[in-house]
């Protein structure tokens, strides 16, 4: 569904992404691993339209994403959860979750349905709905950010370093949450970046290694990867 070909991104005169080829298949979970500075975050930001692509192709269901600005990509059903949560601090959790439905002008019915779907998938959230975005712990914030990305990303969700900054116990419970989302939403395509990938092994279909702005190896994470395809 998403194809990157020979993508090059330059920041401050330096090619952060040099020659990225990446292909996401519908309903699959792809893990992008690499050291800090290898280009994981930059790859997600380039897909989302937050950074200009210098050269190469970026297609989503055959449509040229390079011609679209970030908000138009969101409207296509691409959700993004940045590494550092970045909720709107003065909005409640529920308003944070509903913000995309306002921005995308969803009908009240659609917004309610998506919100209910997210509350079902992430049962931690209903109890937090009236809490302010600025008054959440790190672990709670991550779950809200995931919910918000799911509100936008009806087809593709990009998660940047979801375990970064979480204590081991919280990271484990986040991984379980993600596994539940994966199991319930088989139609969803996931692209997750991680520097310590152990927690996600169980649900990853394709694992890619990024090094110095280039994707080096393509290897199925599990021999039974095909089974998890819808």
């Amino acid at each position: 569904m998403l194809e990157m070909r020979s993508v090059r991104v330059v920041r401050g005169g330096f090619a952060v992404l040099r020659d990225i080829d990446l292909s996401l298949e519908s309903g699959r979970t792809t893990l992008l691993v690499g050291r800090n500075g290898a280009g994981k975050t930059t790859t997600l930001r380039a897909i989302m339209g937050l950074l200009p692509i210098e050269a190469g192709e970026l297609a989503y269901d055959g449509a040229d994403l390079r011609r679209m600005r970030a908000h138009a990509r969101a409207a296509l059903g691409i959700g993004y959860a940045p590494e550092d949560r970045r909720l709107i601090p003065e909005f409640t959790v529920e308003d944070n979750l509903l913000l995309p439905s306002l921005a995308l002008r969803l009908s009240a019915k659609q917004a309610r349905e998506r919100l209910r779907m997210i509350y079902d998938l992430l049962p931690e959230l209903p109890a937090l709905r009236a809490r302010l975005g600025g008054h959440l712990s790190g672990g709670q914030g991550k779950i809200v950010a995931l919910g918000r990305a799911l509100m936008v990303g009806t087809r593709l969700v990009l998660l940047d370093e979801p375990f970064q900054g979480l204590a081991p116990a919280l990271a484990h419970s986040y991984a379980e949450t993600l596994a539940r989302v994966r199991a319930e939403r088989r139609d969803l395509t996931l692209l997750v970046t991680e520097s310590g990938p152990q927690l996600l092994e169980a649900l990853v279909d394709v694992k890619l290694q990024i090094e110095r702005g280039r994707i080096d190896s393509l290897a199925p994470a599990r021999s039974d990867a095909a089974e998890s395809a819808p």
């Binding site: 937050l50 970030a70 969101a74 993004y80 709107i88 601090p89 003065e90 913000l99 995309p100 995308l104």
Partner: peptide, 16 residues
């Protein structure tokens, strides 16, 4: 309010 708080994230949520 969202654009003031975080211009970049606002875009990724579909805000023009």
């Amino acid at each position: 309010t969202a654009v003031v708080a975080d211009r970049e994230v606002a875009q990724t949520l579909g805000i023009n």
